[in-house]
Design a protein around this nucleic acid. Structure first.
Length: 829
DNA sequence: GGCACACGAATTTTT
DNA sequence: TTCGTGTGCC
């Protein structure tokens, strides 16, 4: 077999990683060093040069985005598309789901088990707490969720948690874990943590399971290895125990999921944990300019515990990093929008720009401003598609149909749309689930449904010797009228949907009939007229996604696997129906994919996302916004590990930029509706100022604007003013270009921005005066950017007259040229 | 049982 | 600011 020609395009280290065949391989891949390139080529190389079977290769990633991207790139490298489709490329969680789905019986699960997402999990936790007569308020739910997930991330079963309990409180937690786990099992469901933990248990306990898998899967590759949690790590160990063909790629500097249980110790200690580890360091960065890389290094250098590596580039320095400090968060956003607007005018493409923020909430302002400027954008992440109420409702119906034990799903939709089953009735149903023979809400519902009102015996002829239980049953039997009718109707809908599953080829058709049957669109229309159209559109998108899933080339294989695993033990036609199996697959997918694949609109839009979402991506021009203390870093307590992780996050953000990097912040920011003064992020101050350039339109003359505030605060208290020594950072002097602010449209505020003292006064007393035109010399406005409440943003072409009544000819981004009276305009800059 | 309203609380990041 | 939960009324 001859080497493929692309081998020549790799640098020596990359090539070493690609050509390595057997045994453990650790690739320490700095940002932008061609990590994905190495992984994808390694896969191709294994197949085409070493003759490894495609289905013997398993590549694991953490996000669906990364998995999709890898799949795409592998497809490009391997000409045999059928072979390429047999390579398993999936996230850890999808892989776990697949293992469980195919071995449900081994894991003690029903074939149709549900996957609970974080929201479902919370609901169940709350129910369990109620049943245990414990507080079930938000904080308690959060605490227990955190606890359970923490145990599962560490690979601990309830029993192990109990064994490790060291005091009353931890015993109580472990006891809760046990009860919760039983409840999950009762509901025929698994949570996210189980997708790793349950397969892991099989690997530990089922003789031959690990052996079988390691014969099947001979080469494992793991992307973003720094993000593995202990459970995932153990899973990898067990899967590769017989052959040790484990290739991991990662960068300890980009470990940003500690809060989710990721432990960088795995990558830091990989060399010791396995024998004869081949180590490859990829240190050449191909992505960023010299200055951007230097800035990233300035920031990350402050972290202690790191693999030693020296990221370098032979690219030129490039432009200095542009820093802008707005007077408030709104101005920050509008400055960013305008900067992009200007670049677009010069011919840049929207998809070259990305705005990264620390928390999703920050995105809103940028959306607003981009809209003002008529710039197309796409928001990645945020409230994910599958988290939307209407989507969860529809999926809950499907889950109910497939898994009658799924009480969380049942409770969600039994009265959606409203059909007369209120809190009281639901309580009665719930109370009955403790009676023998009625384990689940749907059982209780059927009990009611079959109780025809006296002459016929109740379902199962259930009677209880226990008076309390009998009381519960009596309460159910006494239901009449709307509640009872609603319950019957609900069961009928499920029954008909199950029937459809058995008789319809297309899952999309089944869902459409479900919508009709529930009259869901009308329900949307009546309950929230304003959003109904949007929500309905989302539902159509869901149907679309289902159709796509049904046509996906990898779907048949998935279905076959499940079919094989259940065929010999189940002969329920509902279970074995094609549509059911596909529905099962689709539900798994939707539980594990946080966002609707928006592969469609990559082009023509500016990208907005959190920094977490940005990992693994790159853009020509990057705006890292909200660079302030308390926003970024966003620290809960003063745990140094937490700070280190925030720092890595900053490193990730900076290293996404190829050619231009903008860092912005605001001196005042609204948080929870309250306005607060801010301080510049320590990460910004860690960057050597020689690499930075402060934009002259900033509301400050120093990047370390808080230093001047501290400085003058000091001055107020002591007669001998000293230069602030509080900051350990380099001092920055804006040597030139310190413009007066008289012509920037904010000149209703006296121009007193030059000295620290005046600046600090400004911070204390200045109130942003929005929209008041004042009596500026209007002739100066030609060329400046203005905004209008209806027309959005535009550039001033011409001015006639003066003062408020002046008539301005403006080229608006959205509507073209208009003439508008001065007083209806807001000058932006 | 359903609805409207008020109040209160709370906010990282994601599989 | 926005969300969700709790209360009171029809």
């Amino acid at each position: 077999m001859k080497s493929p020609e692309w081998l020549e395009t790799l640098n020596p280290q990359q090539r070493r990683a690609v050509e390595h065949r057997d045994g453990p391989l650790l690739v320490l891949a700095g940002a932008g060093s061609g990590k994905t390139r190495v992984l994808t080529r390694r896969i191709a190389h294994l197949i085409e040069v070493h003759g490894v079977g495609p289905s013997e290769i398993v590549a694991v990633t953490f996000t669906n985005k990364a998995a999709d991207e890898m799949r795409r790139r592998v497809d490009q490298l391997i000409s045999d598309t059928e072979a390429a489709s047999r390579i398993i490329i999936s996230t850890f969680h999808s892989l776990g789901a697949r293992l469980l789905r195919n071995h449900a019986h081994l894991a003690g699960l029903d074939w149709g088990f549900s996957i609970y997402d974080a929201t479902d999990q919370k609901r169940l936790i709350s129910d369990v707490l109620d049943r245990m007569n414990k507080a079930s308020d938000r904080a308690a739910v959060r605490h227990h969720q955190h606890y359970v997930n923490g145990r599962k991330n560490r690979g601990q079963t309830p029993m192990e948690a109990m064994e490790q309990a060291y005091n009353a409180a931890s015993e109580e937690n472990a006891e809760f874990y046990r009860t919760y786990q039983n409840a999950l099992r009762d509901a025929g469901a698994v949570d996210f943590g189980d997708l790793i933990l349950q397969p892991l248990r099989l690997l530990r306990e089922e003789r031959g399971f690990a052996d079988r898998l390691s014969r099947l899967w001979k080469f494992l590759l793991v992307d973003e290895f720094q993000d593995t949690n202990p459970a995932q790590y153990e899973m990898l160990e067990r899967l590769t125990a017989t052959h040790n063909n484990l290739a991991v790629v990662g960068d300890d500097d980009q470990s940003i999921y500690r809060w989710r249980g990721a432990d960088p110790a795995h990558i830091l200690g990989f060399e010791e944990a396995f024998d004869d580890v081949e180590i490859v360091k990829l240190e050449q960065n191909y992505r960023s300019t010299g200055l951007i890389l230097d800035a990233a290094n300035d920031v990350i250098a402050q972290n202690q515990r790191r693999h030693s590596k020296q990221l370098w580039t032979d690219r030129p320095d490039g432009e200095p990093i542009c820093v802008f400090t707005g007077r408030d968060d709104r101005e920050e956003a509008s400055w960013v929008a305008e900067a992009i607007f200007d670049e677009l005018r010069k011919g840049a493409e929207p998809e070259d720009f990305a705005i990264f923020y620390r928390t999703n909430a920050q995105g809103r302002l940028f959306e607003e401003q981009l809209r003002q400027y008529g710039i197309d954008y796409r928001v990645v992440g945020g409230t994910s598609f599958y988290d939307r109420r209407e989507i969860k409702d529809v999926l809950a119906y499907l889950r109910c149909a497939l898994n009658p034990r799924d009480d969380v799903a049942t409770a969600r939709v039994i009265n959606t749309p409203r059909r007369g089953i209120g809190k009281k009735t639901l309580e009665k149903l719930r109370a009955a689930t403790t009676v023998d023979g009625i384990e689940h809400l749907q059982d209780a519902a059927e009990f009611v449904d079959e109780t025809t009102g006296g002459d016929q015996p109740a379902l199962f002829g259930i009677q209880s010797a226990n008076p309390a239980e009998q009381e519960v049953l009596d309460a159910l039997e006494s239901l009449r009228g709307r509640p009872k009718g609603g319950i019957s109707r609900f069961l009928q809908i499920l029954e008909e949907t199950r029937d459809d599953l058995m008789h319809f080829e297309s899952l999309a058709d089944v869902v459409e009939r479900l919508l009709e049957r529930t009259d869901y669109p009308a329900f949307l229309e009546s309950s929230e007229p304003d959003d109904a159209a949007d929500r309905l559109r989302n539902i159509f998108e869901l149907i679309n996604a289902i159709e796509q899933f049904e046509q996906d080339p990898t779907t048949p294989q998935l279905i076959d696997e499940v079919r094989q695993s259940i065929s010999d033990e189940v002969d329920d036609p509902l279970v074995t129906a094609d549509a059911s199996l596909r529905l099962r697959g689709f539900l798994d997918r939707s539980a594990l994919v946080s966002q609707a694949e928006e592969a469609d609109d990559e082009q023509g839009a500016v990208t907005l996302m959190t920094i977490h979402g940005a990992k693994g991506l790159e853009f020509d021009t990057v705006f890292v916004v909200g660079m302030e203390e308390d926003t970024f870093p966003n620290l809960r307590d003063d745990d140094p590990e937490e700070l280190a992780e925030e720092r890595r996050l900053a490193y990730v953000a900076i290293t996404r930029a190829q050619n231009r990097l903008f860092i912005t912040n605001a001196r005042r920011r609204r948080i929870y509706g309250k306005t607060r003064n801010t301080e510049p992020s320590r990460f910004l101050l860690d960057i050597n100022p020689e690499r930075l350039r402060l934009d002259p339109r900033s509301s400050t003359t120093s990047i370390d604007y808080a230093a001047s505030r501290r400085h003058s605060a000091k001055k107020r208290h002591s007669r001998h003013s000293t230069r602030s020594a509080a900051s350990s950072s380099w001092s920055f002097d804006q040597s030139s270009g310190g413009t007066s602010k008289s012509d920037d449209g904010f000149n209703q505020t006296p121009s007193h921005w030059d000295g620290d003292e005046a600046f600090s006064q400004d911070v204390d007393v200045q109130v942003y005066d929005d929209g008041d035109a004042g009596a500026d010399s209007t002739s100066k406005l030609v060329g400046s950017t203005v905004s209008h409440s209806r027309f959005g943003v535009g550039k001033v072409l011409d001015v006639s007259g003066s003062g408020d009544r002046a008539r301005l000819t403006i080229d608006f981004a959205t509507v073209g040229q208009k003439t508008v009276i001065r007083k209806f305009l807001k000058v932006l800059g």
